[in-house]
């Protein structure tokens, strides 16, 4: 997994609330057995018409946002299906950070497994960043994971909360499985004890 340290870039505004993972990556693209190559289908049904032509009004089709690295979104981003194809598609497009007032739990968790930082901030701060995002290339947003801050284009600094373990893994690009396998003796011990107390499992 790629590390995440700091990021300064263009943010695309997506103020719609409850953007679900079916919108982020529709099911016809889940029939892959790989993790890569999904960026072209990110937000597919909002981004292309029935003939597969780009819909010019859609934010990521606009010249200013074609290389956006940040999304600023409405409440409850990533709700619905657990498909990790959603963060895979975001990452493949080039999005490394999503800023919202709230995220659905499974999506939030999946982001950290893929080097994407989801940042939850209060409404009034998201509103400031949404305004920046609307200005396209003229208003870049900066994100600093180590210091847990987001800086708006005019220099306002907003702090965000983050689980220390998730932060550590993302900052260092760590693989969870490797870390867990360091505790394999604890897992062995748990299984032995459970074999006594709950043998039917």
């Amino acid at each position: 997994m790629e590390k995440f340290t700091t990021l300064t870039g263009v943010a695309a505004p997506m103020p719609l609330v409850n953007i679900d993972t079916d919108m982020i990556i529709p099911k016809q693209f889940l029939k892959t057995i790989k993790r890569s190559g999904l960026g072209v289908n990110l937000f597919d049904e909002m981004r292309y018409d029935d003939q597969g032509r780009e819909i010019p009004d859609f934010v990521l089709n606009q010249p200013a946002y074609r290389n956006a690295q940040i999304l600023v979104t409405g409440d409850n981003f990533g709700c619905g299906s657990s498909r990790e194809h959603a963060p895979w598609a975001l990452l493949d497009f080039g999005i490394r950070c999503v800023i919202s007032t709230s995220f659905a739990d499974i999506f939030y968790n999946n982001c950290f497994k893929n080097g994407i930082l989801p940042v939850a901030l209060p409404q009034e701060q998201v509103d400031v960043l949404m305004e920046d995002a609307r200005k396209g290339e003229n208003a870049r947003i900066s994100v600093d994971l180590e210091n847990q801050t987001v800086t708006s284009a005019d220099g306002q600094v907003f702090s965000f909360e983050l689980d220390p373990f998730k932060k550590h893994c993302l900052l260092n690009g760590l693989d969870d499985i490797g870390l867990t396998l360091e505790k394999v003796s604890a897992i062995d011990a748990f299984e032995q004890q459970a074999q006594q107390s709950r043998p039917w499992v």
Binding site: S82, E84, P87, I106, K113, D176, T180, L181, I187
Partner: peptide, 23 residues
């Protein structure tokens, strides 16, 4: 019982555990 992403599927396959914080 709850849903997980594919990275966690791999984690459970390999370790029979999940890294979690209590809700």
């Amino acid at each position: 019982a709850h849903g997980i992403g594919t990275s966690e599927v791999e984690h459970v396959l390999a370790t029979q555990t999940l890294i979690q914080r209590k809700g």
